[in-house]
Simulated scan of single mutants.
Amino acid sequence: MLDRLKSAASRLKAELLALSYAARDPRTPWYARALALLVLTYALSPIDLIPDFIPVLGYLDDLLLLPAGLWLALRLIPPQVMADARAQAARHPHKLGKSIWGLLLMLLIYAALVVLAWRWWTLRQSI
């Protein structure tokens, strides 16, 4: 069981690395590139949408959101681009580290969600 989990984690990291190469490829459509960058930002951000200290839900977002976003991004990228990106990732494996840009984007998303919630609340109170 532990070996299967390690293998799955290794495949996930390899796919994220390939996704980072595919996102930089000019043959990738803009919408697939945008989703790929969002998935990579979330994966590399030091903060999560739901903090890990919240029991069950904290890890549920990592187990569901990241694979689902990765799956969708991989489906939107042309197969030949992904094949080339996977080959490039296999030739140049390196660790994807935490990203300051990922942190900043996640903070921006949190701020936008707070503003939207506040606006919804104030509009609801005025009715």
Results as ranks from 00 to 15, higher is better:
Ala43Trp: 13
Pro26Asp: 07
Lys95Tyr: 12
Ala87Gln: 14
Ala68Leu: 12
Asp48Gln: 15
Lys98Cys: 14
Lys95Gly: 09
Arg91Ala: 11
Asp84Tyr: 02
Arg75Thr: 07
Val56Arg: 08
Leu96Cys: 08
Ala73Pro: 03
Gly97His: 12
Ala90Arg: 14
Leu72Asn: 05
Ala14Thr: 06
Tyr42Ile: 10
Leu49Trp: 08
Val81Tyr: 09
His94Glu: 14
Asp62Met: 04
Met82Cys: 06
Pro93Tyr: 14
Asp84Arg: 12
Pro67Ser: 12
Leu64Thr: 15
Leu19Glu: 00
Ser20Ile: 04
Thr28Asn: 01
Val39Ser: 04
Asp52Gly: 12
Gln88Leu: 15
Leu35Asn: 02
Leu96His: 08
Asp52Leu: 09
Arg86Lys: 15
Leu65Arg: 06
Leu70Gln: 07
Ala43Ser: 14
Leu65Ala: 11
Ser20Leu: 10
Tyr59Ser: 08
Ile47Lys: 05
Leu74Pro: 05
Ala18Pro: 03
Arg33Asn: 04
His92Cys: 05
Leu76Tyr: 04
Leu60Gln: 12
Leu40Ala: 05
Trp30Ser: 08
Val39Ala: 02
Arg24Leu: 09
Leu64Tyr: 09
Ala22Lys: 00
Ile77Leu: 02
Tyr42Ala: 15
Glu15Trp: 04
Tyr21Lys: 01
Pro29Thr: 04
Gly69Ala: 09
Ile47Gly: 10
Gly58Met: 07
Ala34Leu: 09
Lys98Gly: 15
Ile50Gly: 05
Ala32Pro: 02
Gln80Ala: 15
Arg75Leu: 13
Leu17Ile: 05
Thr28His: 01
Trp71Phe: 15
Leu44Cys: 12
Leu16Phe: 07
Leu63Tyr: 14
Asp48Trp: 07
Ala89Arg: 07
Leu72Cys: 06
Arg86Ile: 10
Ile77Asn: 02
Val39Trp: 04
Asp61Val: 06
Ala14Val: 04
Ala34Phe: 10
Leu70Thr: 07
Leu70Trp: 08
Tyr21Cys: 01
Met82Val: 12
